[in-house]
């Protein structure tokens, strides 16, 4: 193997990182704004979940470089994520049934 698969000669420059950070800051502002809006609560909840997911993925793909890194790193990270989300949803569903 002449070179390591995880070498990073093609990392983007500061301009992209600053753009991503500005978008993240704007999304956080929208999140907080949506929180204080007088909208139907389920709409706000879904907006907040969507914004949180977007911010999460932007950091993972751009700042942690999973977008351009080896797919096995993505597998190591996202496989537990699927399990974690399933556990959270299952526990909420279970306890909702048990306690109401």
């Amino acid at each position: 193997m002449a070179h390591l698969a995880d070498s990073h000669d093609s990392h983007p420059g500061p301009r992209l990182y600053i753009t991503v950070a500005l978008i993240l800051a704007a999304l956080t502002g929208i999140e907080v704004g949506a929180f204080f809006l007088e909208l139907s609560s389920w709409i706000v909840v879904w907006i907040l979940i969507l914004l949180t997911l977007t911010k999460f993925l932007m950091v993972v793909f751009f700042f942690m470089h999973l977008r351009m890194d080896d797919n096995r790193f993505s597998l190591l990270f996202f496989a537990p994520m699927v399990i974690m989300v399933s556990v959270v949803v299952a526990l909420l569903a279970l306890f909702q049934n048990l306690t109401r």
């Binding site: 190591l76 537990p80 399990i83 974690m84 989300v85 526990l91 909420l92 306890f95």
Partner: peptide, 17 residues
């Protein structure tokens, strides 16, 4: 980090429940 996802997932799930 994959294992820490499960760690924090458990803490968040417990809190929400």
């Amino acid at each position: 980090l994959g294992s820490d996802v499960l760690f924090f997932g458990t803490l968040i799930a417990t809190h929400l429940v």
